[in-house]
Amino acid sequence: MPRVKRPVTLATVATSAGVSIATVSKVLNGRSDVSLATRRRVQDVLQKHGYVGRRTEPAERGSVELFYQGVVNSYSLEVIQGVVEAGQLAGVDVVLTTRPPRPHPQTSSTARAARWIQDLIASGRRAAIGISSELSDADLAALSRARLPFVVVDPANTPAPGVTSVGSTNFAGGMAATQHLLSLGHRRIAYLGGPATSGCAKARMSGFRSAMEAVGAAVPKEYVRLQDSRYDDGLAGGAILLDLPDPPTAIFAGTDEAALGVIEAARARGLRVPEDLSVVGFDDTQVARLASPPLTTVKQPLQDMGAVALRTALQLAAGEKVDSHHVELATSLVVRGSAAATS
């Protein structure tokens, strides 16, 4: 008689993966309190054995609200991908929405905030994550009353006490970008970034100023433009900088998209990049690699920032303590072809 193949059990999977049965169960149930390496090892063993668990009543996977302000761009897409991939590993759904709608003129911000939080809770959200979001005091108060964990990636302003955030070393990144231009012999360096209310933009500008002061390089008032950092802003701001009586030989833009706008403003004036003008961006999104010439930029680990935000939100939802209410991931300079030594 042919041998009957014995069914694979949790114990079999646990032994093969070198973990406990409880750990295998946590992975199957999408629990967040399992390290990424262990989770992947267990998932590999489950797939290898073709393990299929017993059918039970449909379990609520749980979901996390991910919202953003403004138009989705190359920056936010990178963060979104990091959040979504981390959600898949953790076994939770990520629901993407725009910023909570503005209140009706006859509706108070407190009432609007309460309605927003009620909708999140009714939808079974375990936590909320915002990308470059600026929440009102009413929003934060409603989140606190509902005990709904909230994590913001690259906060648009200085986070209120108790708000957990994930960002990058913006000051160090601003210094690295400027020091690179200084090492190429540039001294007439302009900064184009913002808006002025943005905490991360102010940190990048502070890094720029610090690097310039360290070598005694002057920063004329007209060399600093604090504005939004989209492509059109870079185009308009770059035009103003390049039309100055004594224009800069290099421009540090606060985002990759703004840097591309600066490059186009230079081309419209018959200037070559990097021969006549050096340009450095910030973020290292896909547009930096596709630019012509490829853009020298400061890399933010955007997908990692999204993943950390998701895991932190789930930790808070599980009632666990986090080591810090603000996490900064390291930036690094990526040298490509948009900056060259000054003649």
Score class of each variant (00 low, 15 high):
52 V>T: 13
203 A>P: 13
331 T>A: 02
32 S>D: 11
194 G>R: 05
297 T>H: 04
264 E>K: 08
139 D>N: 14
69 Q>G: 12
340 A>F: 08
229 S>A: 12
157 N>A: 03
136 S>H: 05
91 G>E: 01
69 Q>T: 07
201 A>I: 12
50 G>K: 11
42 V>M: 03
97 T>N: 14
117 I>M: 01
259 A>D: 08
156 A>I: 00
46 L>T: 02
151 V>S: 07
228 D>T: 02
54 R>W: 07
191 Y>S: 06
148 L>C: 13
82 G>V: 01
196 A>N: 10
75 Y>N: 12
158 T>S: 15
41 R>I: 00
239 A>I: 06
73 N>E: 05
123 S>N: 15
275 E>H: 10
140 L>Y: 11
78 E>K: 05
181 L>M: 09
71 V>A: 15
310 L>H: 11
223 Y>H: 12
98 T>K: 11
281 G>P: 03
302 L>Q: 08
245 P>Q: 15
173 G>P: 11
310 L>F: 13
191 Y>D: 10
76 S>K: 15
223 Y>M: 00
337 G>A: 02
264 E>N: 07
36 L>E: 13
132 S>E: 05
16 S>P: 02
326 H>V: 02
129 I>Q: 10
251 I>N: 11
271 L>C: 03
274 P>Q: 00
220 P>K: 12
111 A>L: 13
8 V>A: 08
74 S>I: 00
141 A>F: 06
67 F>Y: 15
151 V>C: 01
223 Y>L: 01
265 A>N: 04
5 K>R: 15
263 I>R: 11
27 V>N: 01
75 Y>S: 06
272 R>Y: 04
92 V>Y: 09
147 R>Q: 09
295 L>C: 04
264 E>P: 02
87 G>R: 06
283 D>N: 15
278 S>M: 06
209 R>V: 00
228 D>L: 12
96 L>C: 06
137 D>N: 04
58 P>L: 12
10 L>P: 07
42 V>I: 10
74 S>T: 00
322 V>D: 06
117 I>T: 10
270 G>T: 01
87 G>N: 06
30 G>D: 12
211 A>C: 05
239 A>K: 10
294 P>M: 03
335 V>K: 14
